[in-house]
Design a protein around this nucleic acid. Sequence first.
DNA 1: ATAGATGCAAATATTTTGCCGCCAG
DNA 2: CTGGCGGCAAAATATTTGCATCTAT
Lengths: 160, 160
Amino acid sequence: MPTTAHRVSAGERINAHALPGRLQEALESRGVRLTRQRKILLSVMDSAERHLDAGAILERAQKLDPRVHKVTVYRTLDLLKRNGLIDELDLLHLRGDQHFYESHGPRDHIHVACLKCGKVREFESELYEKLKKQIAKDCNIQITLTRTEVGGYCEKCRKP
Amino acid sequence: MPTTAHRVSAGERINAHALPGRLQEALESRGVRLTRQRKILLSVMDSAERHLDAGAILERAQKLDPRVHKVTVYRTLDLLKRNGLIDELDLLHLRGDQHFYESHGPRDHIHVACLKCGKVREFESELYEKLKKQIAKDCNIQITLTRTEVGGYCEKCRKP
DNA sequence: ATAGATGCAAATATTTTGCCGCCAG
DNA sequence: CTGGCGGCAAAATATTTGCATCTAT
C-alpha cells in the first residue's frame, strides 16, 4: 500500500497541546476524567489534517509525550465512539484494512477518494440529505449514522 | 410500500452446489482455471442469502467438501476482487471488524442496517444515481466504485 | 507437461483483555 | 481517599506469505 502524500493544510495547528479543542471540550462537559494521555490524544485528533488510524495517532501522540501507550489509544478511541464524538471509517481500504477516525462535526459528508494517488476529499450535498430522507421514509428506519465512500480516478491520475 | 424500487435480501438463489452460478460463469468466460475448491467457493457465494465474511464462507464450503482450506478462501476472494466480481463491505462493523462480500450485479445499491436487530436491507434509488453524477462532476472524478452504508433503528426495534 | 493453484505452517497486522499499580478529582 | 485509568504482556482475531506439492488444461 502506497504511503499517501502528506497534505499540509492551512488549518493545521502547530502546537498540539496548546488549547482544548472540540473533543476535549465535549468530554469535559460530560464530566469525563481528563488524564494527561487523554489530553494529548484528543489534541492530536483535533488538530489532524487528514484521517488517522490508531497507529498514526499513537505515533503523533508519542512525539508529544513518549509515555502514551498503544492500548490507551484504543481505549480512548472506544471512549469517543461510545460518546458519539468520532466516526470510524474504512476509506475503501485504500490504505489498508485498519480503521480511520475523524472528529465529526455537525455536517455530514461523503468521502471521495482517488484510487491512484490516494487523495481523499470531503463532499457535502443537499442531494445526499434528500437521499437520506428518502431512505428513512421508504425503509421506515430512524437513521443514526451514515457512511458514503466513493472511489475513482481524479483528473490528474486520468491523464497520461 | 415505497415508491422506490428495492431488492429483497442479498441473494435468493436457492440451491448451492447445483449449477454454475453467475460468478463461475464470469470466471469461465475469462479463461480462469476452475479448480474443485474454486467451484465450491463460488457456489457458496453465489447462493448466499446474506452477506458472508471469510470465516462463514469457509464454514459453508467445508460442509460441501472438508478439503477446502482457509487460505484458499482468501486467495479466491482476492481473485474475485481483482476481477471486479465482488464487493467488499464492512456493514458499519455491525457484526465485527471483518469484511463481508457480495457478488455484485449490475445495479448499485445502498446497505441499510438496523443497529439493534442487525437486519440488512438493500435499497436502490434514482436519487443515488443522481448523487453519484453530481459527485463525479463537482469533484471531477471518474467514479469506479461506491459504497453507502446506513445505520439506524427499524420499525420493530423502535417499538417498546 | 507445466503454469498456476492448493495446503500447511508461520508470519503480520490489528485490536482486545487480565491484572495490578497509579492518579485525577 | 478511591474508583476509574493507564501500562505491560499476552491473547484474540483477521489476513498474508514462503515453500513444497499437486492438478486443470
